[in-house]
Design a protein around this nucleic acid. Sequence first.
DNA 1: AACTCTGTACAGTTTAAACTGTACAAAAAA
DNA 2: TTTTTTGTACAGTTTAAACTGTACAGAGTT
Lengths: 156, 156
Amino acid sequence: MNNSTIENATYDIISEFAKTIEMFGLSPLEARLFVYLYLQNQPKTLDDMSEALGKSKTSMSTGIRSLSDFNLVTLVWRKGVRKDLYEANNELFKSFMNNYVTKWINASNHQKDALEKIHHELKKLNIEEYPEITDNLTRIIDFHRQLESSFRRLQS
Amino acid sequence: MNNSTIENATYDIISEFAKTIEMFGLSPLEARLFVYLYLQNQPKTLDDMSEALGKSKTSMSTGIRSLSDFNLVTLVWRKGVRKDLYEANNELFKSFMNNYVTKWINASNHQKDALEKIHHELKKLNIEEYPEITDNLTRIIDFHRQLESSFRRLQS
DNA sequence: AACTCTGTACAGTTTAAACTGTACAAAAAA
DNA sequence: TTTTTTGTACAGTTTAAACTGTACAGAGTT
């Protein structure tokens, strides 16, 4: 077994696993970046990532920032090393599920609020002639309620 | 209460609800198209949709095809009407959740299979010197298992 | 202090997705 | 049959996302 075999396997793993990670709403680069870090046993610098993925350092910088915002990677300090070192958060399932569910619920609720506001506005006016629109609105708002409760179940 | 108020409200509802629908993986146009049909009480033609959304008929055609593939809209027949008429599937929650969960599980399993294949290939070779890579691979495969079981719970 | 290194802001480029208009095959009407 | 209508294939355009290279501020080193 030589190094090139390991490298090929690593490359294949990155490619496949990144597809799954993308489904959580990460861009292709962010996904590959995360997977790369996850497969490494030591924290890596922007230059390491840039070389390993064959993309510019600027891309690494912005990608890492996003991952950091999602709490998927962490900046670690190591004595004597000037460059920033990043490592993947290793609680895979928890990290992704929590992020994902939270994102869904927040977005869904945001739209639900807007729709409820429209609902109230319509009720203030006299719309006896147009019952369908409020009926539909009620159903749509209820749909958002179901979404929230379903995704909340997913979280725990 | 005049028509323009109803039209404005309809427009606002489409805008907001479409954002939620987009989260299920539909494109902005597909989402708006679905919501438009959902809010209408009669089936509509491609020309109706084109005019209502202010987009080309070609876009409507491709959009409707996608929605049809997802089983989110249905072609309905009405005596004496030449044009195709489409209506939204009204089982909102069931339609979207089933689609979504199925899509997730299929994609996740697809990647899991590919990763398991890599795992077997690596085991065939002698890789005692590199235990980390198989350890990580095991964890990643397990992550896919957790995903599947979580999303399966969401379905029922 | 001056000099070096590192991360990122920003403008510009490349790449991919969304969308349109024309043209035409298939079906309906005359 | 010929004529009209309807949906979609396809090529081309517009719009948005991804990505890069240069330049520079701030921190570290000498």
